[in-house]
Amino acid sequence: MKFSATVTLQYDTIFSSFSPADYLKGLDWMKANHLDGAELCISNYNNLDVAKIKDELDQRGLGCSTLSTGQARGLEGLSLIGVPADVTKKTQERFMQHIDAAKILGSKVTMGLMRGLGSQTTMDKDLKELAEAMKPIIEYADKKGVIICLEAINRYETALLNSAEATVEFIDNGLGNPDCVGILWDLFHANIEDIGYERSIKIMGNKLKHIHLADSNRMFPGYGHTDIAAILKMVKNTGYSEYASFECFNLPSLETVLNETGAWVQKMREL
């Protein structure tokens, strides 16, 4: 298993310990704390040199685990469903840009809230609409050899695909089980929605392509009640060799995150 942390390139995010202006300092911190890569938060590709970013990662011996894509929903209103057709098209095009960047960076692409929120009363219709909107993205990802990580997100943020089980069912039956679509399993959301961690790991199987690390209260691991070490040990026992990436708040403090990450990761490597 490999480890990464979120760093943002354009706009501040609560999940990064560094501002966009300090992006390179963030990469230096990752290298100093023996992380394997970075999860890059990218909203758009205006004046963004992806090849330069790849070089900056390579210089530090870092990979790119995934591209975090959700900022564009809040900043631009991008969504695959529940919006006018021209917005859906623009969102599809943005995902294709992410796929192009991921091809260069050797990373995966996350699909979280930018897929759309839906509602409980129109869930079946929403999921059919989502499957249709994802078709050109899936075709493009398959052509480029890039994995899309569909995130299971709790019910308080979206009505759609809340649990690992629901996400597996959608990939299998809604999308036809394409090879280029897997699951992003966020332990904060799983703590709310999943019946049991071991059960979810078995249900996801080889569809599990990326993990987000955060405790039950979205704090740094060890400051809530989730036994993350036990969960990661179960995941490692399946042969999982992809990334687990920190997506927690800078809590209980920024200093905690900056000072404890290296030692915590080393403990997880020794499981």
Rank of each mutant, 00 (worst) to 15 (best):
M1N: 01
L9A: 10
L9D: 08
D12N: 13
T13K: 01
I14E: 15
F15N: 01
S16L: 09
F18W: 07
P20W: 03
P20C: 00
K25F: 13
D28E: 08
W29D: 01
W29V: 01
L35P: 01
D36F: 08
G37S: 00
A38T: 03
L40W: 03
Y45D: 02
N47H: 12
N47P: 10
N47V: 11
L48F: 15
L48S: 07
D49V: 07
V50T: 07
I53Q: 09
I53E: 12
L57E: 01
L57H: 02
D58V: 14
Q59V: 14
L67Q: 03
S68F: 15
S68K: 12
G70A: 12
G70M: 08
L75H: 09
L75R: 01
L80H: 04
I81W: 03
G82L: 10
P84K: 11
T88N: 10
K90H: 09
T91L: 07
Q92G: 07
E93N: 12
F95P: 11
F95M: 09
M96C: 12
Q97S: 13
A101M: 01
A101L: 01
K103P: 04
G106M: 04
S107N: 05
T110C: 13
T110N: 11
G112A: 03
M114W: 05
G116K: 04
G116W: 06
G116I: 02
L117V: 12
T122R: 13
M123T: 12
L127I: 00
K128Y: 06
K128P: 14
E129C: 09
A131D: 03
E132M: 12
E132Y: 10
M134C: 05
M134Q: 03
K135A: 13
P136W: 06
P136M: 05
I137E: 02
I138S: 00
I138L: 02
E139I: 13
D142G: 08
G145N: 05
I147F: 05
R155Y: 06
T158F: 00
L160S: 00
S163Q: 04
E165V: 14
E169Y: 11
F170D: 01
N177V: 09
N177Y: 14
P178R: 00
C180V: 10
G182C: 00
L187W: 10
L187Y: 12
A190Y: 05
N191Y: 06
D194N: 10
D194I: 02
G196M: 05
R199S: 15
I201P: 01
K202V: 12
I203W: 06
G205F: 00
N206R: 15
K207I: 12
K207H: 11
K209E: 13
H210G: 05
I211H: 05
H212Y: 03
H212D: 04
L213G: 02
A214Q: 07
R218D: 03
R218P: 04
F220S: 00
F220Y: 04
A229Q: 09
I231C: 02
I231L: 03
I231A: 04
I231S: 04
K233S: 14
G239K: 07
S245C: 08
S245V: 02
F246Q: 01
E247G: 00
C248E: 02
F249T: 07
T256V: 14
T256R: 04
L258C: 06
N259L: 11
A263D: 14
W264C: 12
K267D: 10
M268T: 06
M268F: 14
R269C: 09
E270G: 11
